[in-house]
C-alpha cells in the first residue's frame, strides 16, 4: 500500500532524510520513532505530498506520488500534530468543504455516523473556536476520514489529548488498521507503539537505524538479553542522544 524507496530530503546543505526505504501493507501500523530532529515529521510530510522530496520514490496504493500527486492524494489522509481547522467554518461546514474537495457525493450519509462515532454530532453548528482541544482533534479526524482513505499518516497523534481522548485515538487507529488501512504514525510515546503499532521504524539523523516488527527490532537490540523494554531498545538504537 505504501512503498518508499531511497527517499531523500534536503534543506540546503542539511539532509533531513537520507536514503529511506520501507513498505507498509494494508492493516499494518508503522510507528516512526527517533530523537528530536531525526526526520520523522519531514518523512511524513514527504509521504503525504506536502513537501517535495529531493530524491527517491513514494508509491501510495500503486500510484507514484511524484508522477500523479492528485490520484495519490485521493487515497491518503494526513493528520498533523495540531488540528489545523478553518476558524470560520462550523463542524458541518468543514465536512461540506472537504466533501467538495474530495468529491464525496454521499457525504451527508457518511458524515452523520462519523460525527456520532466521534461524539461531536451535537457540535455540528459550532465553530472551532468554541470547541475544546479534543473536539478539534475529533473534527480534524472526521474531515480526514470522510473520503475513506486507504493510507493514513498521523504526526504525534496524542498531542494535547486527555486520557479518554488518548484511549479513543488508539482505538480509532486500531479500528482503521483492522479495516484495511495502511497507517504510519510518528510519536515519542513508546507505549503508543507497543499498544498500537505492528511495525516500528527507528530514525536517527534522517537515517534508518532499524525497521521491522516490534519483536524483530527488540531482538535486534536486546543483545541476547530477555525482557528488554522498548525504552531500552530505543536508547540503545539511537545511542541515547540526539546527535
Amino acid at each position: 500500500m505504501i512503498e518508499v524507496l531511497a527517499l531523500n530530503k534536503r534543506y540546503g546543505d542539511f539532509t533531513a532524510v537520507r536514503e529511506l526505504s520501507f513498505a507498509v501493507q494494508p492493516g499494518e501500523v508503522l510507528g516512526l520513532v527517533g530523537p528530536n530532529g531525526a526526520g520523522k515529521t519531514t518523512t511524513l510530510r514527504c509521504l503525504a505530498g506536502i513537501i517535495p522530496a529531493n530524491g527517491g520514490t513514494v508509491t501510495i496504493g500503486g500510484v507514484n506520488l511524484a508522477q500523479d500527486p492528485v490520484a495519490a492524494k485521493r487515497l491518503l489522509a494526513f493528520f498533523p500534530d495540531e488540528p489545523r481547522l478553518f476558524d470560520y467554518l462550523t463542524v458541518r461546514q468543514h465536512l461540506a468543504f472537504v466533501a467538495r474537495i474530495y468529491g464525496v457525493t454521499d457525504h451527508e450519509a457518511l458524515a452523520g455516523p462519523l460525527l456520532e462515532e466521534l461524539e461531536i454530532a451535537d457540535k455540528a453548528d459550532q465553530l472551532p473556536g468554541e470547541l475544546s482541544r479534543g473536539m478539534k482533534q475529533k473534527l480534524a479526524i472526521a474531515c480526514g476520514l470522510l473520503h475513506s482513505p486507504r493510507v493514513i499518516f498521523f504526526d504525534e497523534p496524542l498531542t494535547g489529548l486527555d486520557p479518554l481522548g488518548i484511549r479513543r485515538m488508539k482505538d480509532s487507529i486500531r479500528q482503521r488498521a483492522a479495516g484495511g488501512a495502511a497507517i504510519v504514525l510518528s510519536s515519542h510515546l513508546l507505549h503508543l507503539l507497543e499498544e498500537v503499532c505492528s511495525h516500528v521504524l527507528i530514525l536517527k539523523q534522517g537515517t534508518k537505524i532499524a525497521h521491522g516488527t516490534l519483536a524483530d527490532v527488540s531482538a535486534q537490540f536486546a543483545n541476547g538479553e530477555s525482557g528488554v523494554s522498548l525504552e531500552e531498545v530505543f536508547i540503545r538504537a539511537t545511542g541515547g542522544s540526539e546527535s
Binding site: Y88, L89, Q93, A96, F97, A99, R100, G103, V104
Partner: peptide
C-alpha cells in the same frame, strides 16, 4: 468568530473544487 449563513449552497460533487475555496473564504 461567529458562525455565518453560507453564501451559497455547496453541493458535495459535480462542481469545480475551486468554488469550495470561494465558499470557504466568503464565510
Amino acid at each position: 468568530a461567529r458562525a455565518r449563513r453560507e453564501p451559497f449552497v455547496l453541493s458535495p460533487a459535480g462542481g469545480r473544487p475551486e468554488l469550495a475555496f470561494l465558499w470557504k473564504n466568503l464565510l
